[in-house]
Simulated scan of single mutants.
Amino acid sequence: MNSEWNQMVTVAQAYRLGTRFLEGYRVESPRFISELLLRVALGWDRTELFTRFHEPLPSEAAHRFITWLKKRAEGIPVQYLTGEQEFFGRSFRVEPSVLIPRPETEILVETVLREADNIWKGRSVTAADMGTGSGAIAVTLALERPDWGIVAVDRSPEALNVARQNGVKNGSGDRIRWLQGDWLDPLRKRDIRVDVLVSNPPYIPVGEIPHLDAEVREHEPRIALDGGRDGLDPYRILVRGIPAVLKNPGLVVFEVGENQSEIVGNMLEESLAGAQVSFVSDLAGRPRVVVARTDKR
């Protein structure tokens, strides 16, 4: 590949070389990935890229672009190369210490907002995000509902550092309380009670991890994937502790994996007597979110 770059190339030529290189390694969507990496390497938006297509490619951008192409061919996710991922229309910093936010998790956030509005009719509430990772859920809730109090918990100090950066980046950092610890422990130790508890925990059964796509299996943090033998260990831990931290009325919203919704729903019904449990499906019709609502007053 490097031999083709020995002479000065234009932005257009770099785009074509990048596309051809990725095609050779059978990387999915080679044209899109080549364009994206080139734009980020240059610091340009899409309009600027195509209006300046025939300009020479600066050497620093060329070096960055070539390095990223090679790493993408090795299976490293694009988001870890560019250092960002969009979620709920906002840009979030990501690095290998955090799971890359998925579009389906936006359904989780939408559900929290809708259900909370139904219960509290726009009044201020306190919400806790368990296993916050990149902070995408906590930061989004803080921005969508500026009058809410938000607590975000993660056991990983590296993940919390990324989450704090995303709070600052998106202008919500000073309204979120960041706590390090295992699941509900930081809330219990500080006697924090919340109206809303939300989580997208690890839910992949440990035996299925070797069969995940290589870029997920080999590059995303295992701690954010491994849900134990059946993928349900984090839910068991959370559900056992919820009565001690959830106010009444209260709302619990979990993202779940395939074939887990009914089991998690039953856990919540047993833990929260009288709770109304419902499910929200993704665009493919699969139950993706479990909701438990307690309305005793």
Score class of each variant (00 low, 15 high):
116 A>L: 02
116 A>F: 02
116 A>M: 00
98 V>H: 01
83 G>M: 12
57 L>N: 09
136 A>M: 05
68 W>R: 14
139 V>P: 00
78 V>E: 13
109 V>R: 09
90 R>Q: 05
71 K>R: 13
95 E>D: 15
38 L>I: 04
72 R>K: 15
47 T>D: 12
39 R>V: 07
134 S>H: 08
75 G>W: 09
66 I>H: 07
55 E>S: 15
87 F>A: 10
38 L>W: 09
48 E>Y: 05
133 G>F: 00
114 R>A: 11
56 P>F: 07
113 L>P: 00
39 R>Q: 11
65 F>Q: 10
80 Y>K: 15
102 R>Q: 04
64 R>F: 01
39 R>M: 12
120 W>P: 05
50 F>C: 04
95 E>V: 11
83 G>W: 10
126 T>R: 13
71 K>A: 09
108 L>R: 06
53 F>T: 10
59 S>D: 03
58 P>F: 14
133 G>N: 07
42 L>F: 13
45 D>E: 06
104 E>T: 01
65 F>V: 05
34 S>K: 11
67 T>A: 11
80 Y>F: 15
77 P>D: 02
51 T>M: 15
95 E>H: 15
73 A>Q: 02
35 E>F: 07
41 A>W: 09
91 S>E: 12
38 L>S: 07
55 E>G: 13
73 A>S: 06
89 G>V: 14
112 V>K: 01
69 L>W: 02
118 N>C: 04
